[in-house]
Structures are given as structure tokens and as C-alpha cells.
């Protein structure tokens, strides 16, 4: 009979690995995310082709693309489990914290994969690039952590609802508003070549948002997941 000596981290990674393997085989979320990102990027590049938008507009456009692309795919992490009936097996197999952090890591991996594709395309198609790459990386790192943290718990909530897709975006938008404001502010500074003083306040907000969102999601998750 199996021996019970798997630690918590290995269990979390098993959930993430399972989701990554399933995703590569079914392309359930990644196709939707990538297609949305590519279509939006192409449309925007055509729209702004004739004139040069300001760096402030570029920063907002970058996060609009990431936000809506993420919205089209991140919810699948729980919707797929509920719709295919595997949620029950998963509930009985492991505790809520393992599932939450496993899914959070998967959503983070998905977001970083999306970012790796969107950033070079954004730079090429919109003929712009950050003057301060370090600030840009801060924005991407902290922005993606916050996006994944908030959307993972919202995905768990909407997976029980009938109109999942629409509800996910509607619920996510107000929750993600502070994150988007802070992250666009940092990205704007990155494009304009600002100094650290310019991003200190939004950085503080972003770090606090990420910490609070992940702790709150962790505390709420068990209740949402078991019902």
C-alpha cells in the first residue's frame, strides 16, 4: 500500500503539474488567452499605426491587453474542474490550501507565459519599449502576482455559478481596480524613464495589495471550495 510521506510543497506542486500537463494536452485556457492577446495587439497596432500615442496611453494599453487576455482564461482553472465533475474527487483528495496554492501557481505560470509572448510583440508592433526595464519588470512581477491571487479566488467563486464567464469579469474588475491603477502608474514610469521616487507609492500599494489578496484568498478559499 502507498506510504504517506509526501510533504505539503510536493502536494501543491502535484496540483500545479497536473494542471500544466492537462493544459498542454487540451489547450483549454492557453488558446483562449493567446488568441485574445494576439487579436487585441494586432487591432491596437493597426489603430495606433498612423500616430504615436503618449507613453501614458501605452502603459494603459499594455495592461488592458494583459487584463482582458487573462480574464478569458484564468477562470478555467476551477470552471474546468466543476464542469468535468473532477472537483468532487479533488475535494476528497486534498485539503483546501493545497488546492488553492496549486491553482495559484498554475495561474501564475499561465500569466508569465502570456507576458513572455505579449511583451516582445507589444514592443515590435507598437514600436515602443520601456526606458527603465527594471521598473517594467517590477510592474510585471507584482502585477501578475496580484492578478493571479485575486482571479484564483474569484474563479473558485464563479465556478459554482450558472453564468460563469460574464460573472468572472464583472467580479474581477472592481477587485482588480487598485492593482490596475498602481501597475499602470509603475509601467508609465518605466516607459517614461522615471526615478524610484515616482514609483515608491504605487509600489507600496502593489506589494500591500498582493500580500492582502493572497492571505485573504487563502483564508476564504476553504469555505468557497467546500460548498
Amino acid at each position: 500500500m502507498p506510504s504517506g510521506n509526501v510533504n505539503w510543497v510536493s502536494k501543491v506542486l502535484a496540483v500545479t503539474e497536473k494542471d500544466i500537463v492537462s493544459e498542454f494536452r487540451t489547450r483549454y485556457a492557453i488558446n483562449a488567452i493567446l488568441m485574445f492577446a494576439l487579436v487585441t495587439l494586432t487591432v491596437i497596432s493597426f489603430a495606433v499605426g498612423a500616430f504615436s500615442p503618449t507613453k501614458e496611453v501605452m502603459a494603459a494599453l499594455f495592461w488592458i491587453i494583459l487584463f482582458f487576455a487573462a480574464m478569458s482564461g484564468l477562470a478555467q482553472v476551477f470552471i474546468k474542474e466543476e464542469e468535468s465533475g473532477t472537483a468532487l474527487a479533488l475535494k476528497l483528495a486534498s485539503d483546501g490550501t493545497v488546492i488553492f496554492f496549486g491553482k495559484l501557481l498554475f495561474n501564475l505560470a499561465l500569466l508569465f507565459a502570456l507576458t513572455v509572448i505579449v511583451v516582445p510583440l507589444f514592443i515590435i508592433l507598437l514600436k515602443t519599449e520601456p526606458a527603465n526595464w527594471l521598473f517594467f519588470l517590477y510592474a510585471i512581477l507584482l502585477g501578475n502576482i496580484g492578478l493571479a491571487g485575486a482571479t484564483t479566488i474569484i474563479a473558485a467563486i464563479v465556478s459554482k455559478a450558472t453564468i460563469k464567464g460574464a460573472l468572472f469579469t464583472v467580479l474581477s474588475f472592481p477587485v482588480l481596480m487598485p492593482l490596475l491603477i498602481a501597475v499602470i502608474e509603475i509601467t508609465k514610469s518605466a516607459f517614461l524613464g522615471g526615478v524610484f521616487k515616482d514609483i515608491a507609492a504605487p509600489m507600496q500599494l502593489l506589494v500591500a495589495y498582493d500580500v492582502v489578496m493572497i492571505i485573504l484568498s487563502y483564508l476564504l478559499f476553504d469555505f468557497v471550495w467546500r460548498q
Binding site: G4, V6, K11, K18, L88, L92, A93
Partner: peptide, 24 residues
């Protein structure tokens, strides 16, 4: 009402459920 993962093999399902339950 309990389903297993269609995108995984039978062995992968067994290994996954054992592992998240804490068993090697």
C-alpha cells in the same frame, strides 16, 4: 458524480490522487 481526469492516463490519475492525498 465523481469524475477523473480525462486528459491524464489511468496511471497518472492514480499517481496524482495518491500524491495530493499525501501518499507516495
Amino acid at each position: 458524480y465523481l469524475s477523473l481526469y480525462g486528459s491524464l492516463t489511468g496511471k497518472e490519475n492514480l499517481r496524482f490522487f495518491a500524491k495530493v492525498n499525501g501518499d507516495n
